Computed example of a mutant assay.
Amino acid sequence: MKNLILLFALTLIFNVSAQEEDMSNLNWLTDLEEAKLISLKEKKPILLYFTGSDWCAPCKMLKQDFFSTPKFEEKAEKMVLVMVDIPRRVDIISPEQKKINMDLVRKYNKNGSYPNLVALNAKGKVIGEISGYTFLRETDRHYAFVDSVLENY
């Protein structure tokens, strides 16, 4: 029984570590107010990423196919990134962060689409949005969206 518990604990630790390693080269914030200050200071657009990290299959695919690529990492240097995670598991984010994230969903993701990318200016005004990701795993629309935000900011 002790071995089974140990095996379960090790599996859990490995899964949490693997989640944290994904997109680790990117500086994802969780505080929009902090992102606005950085956006204003550095004259960069804000990219909100609405995800359900533990339940949304298209979110997981987009993370792998888009966010975890060198091509996106290069573009990310010109943006302020904010991850708005709405997980089902209660141990992924704190209750306080979940409340903050739900407030952001109500304000910027009213349709409840996941994954959903919303670009903002430093004042928090929406300047673009793209939602969804298909099982065809084509990222062209997402790169075009990011390029458009960067070109027009």
Rank of each mutant, 00 (worst) to 15 (best):
H142S: 02
T134F: 00
V82M: 06
L136V: 12
P95T: 12
I100D: 12
Q97C: 09
T69I: 13
V90L: 15
M79T: 11
D140N: 04
E129H: 04
S148F: 08
S94G: 09
S131L: 00
R141Q: 15
R106W: 10
G128T: 09
G132Q: 02
I86N: 07
W55I: 00
S68H: 08
H142D: 09
R88T: 04
K78M: 15
E138Q: 14
Q97N: 09
V149H: 05
A122C: 03
R141K: 15
L136K: 15
P115Y: 01
I100N: 10
K75Y: 12
Y143I: 09
D147P: 13
V105W: 00
V149M: 10
Y114D: 08
I127M: 05
T134C: 00
P58D: 05
D140S: 12
V84Q: 08
T69W: 04
M83N: 14
F135D: 01
P58R: 00
C56H: 02
P115D: 09
C56I: 00
D91T: 13
D85R: 09
A144K: 14
L136E: 15
L120F: 07
M83C: 03
D85W: 10
M61P: 02
V146I: 15
R141V: 05
L117K: 08
T69Y: 09
E129G: 00
A122F: 07
C59D: 02
F145D: 05
S131E: 03
C59N: 07
P70Q: 14
T134I: 01
D54I: 02
V105F: 05
D103G: 08
R88E: 05
Y133N: 00
P58V: 01
S148M: 10
A119C: 12
A122T: 01
L117P: 04
E74A: 14
G124M: 05
Y108D: 01
L150T: 07
C59R: 00
P95V: 13
R88H: 10
I100V: 04
N111E: 14
E151W: 13
L120N: 10
D91V: 10
I130S: 04
P115L: 05
P58T: 01
E151K: 15
S68A: 10
Y153L: 11
I100Q: 11
W55R: 00
W55C: 02
D147W: 03
S68T: 13
T69H: 12
D91F: 14
E74S: 12
S113L: 08
C59W: 03
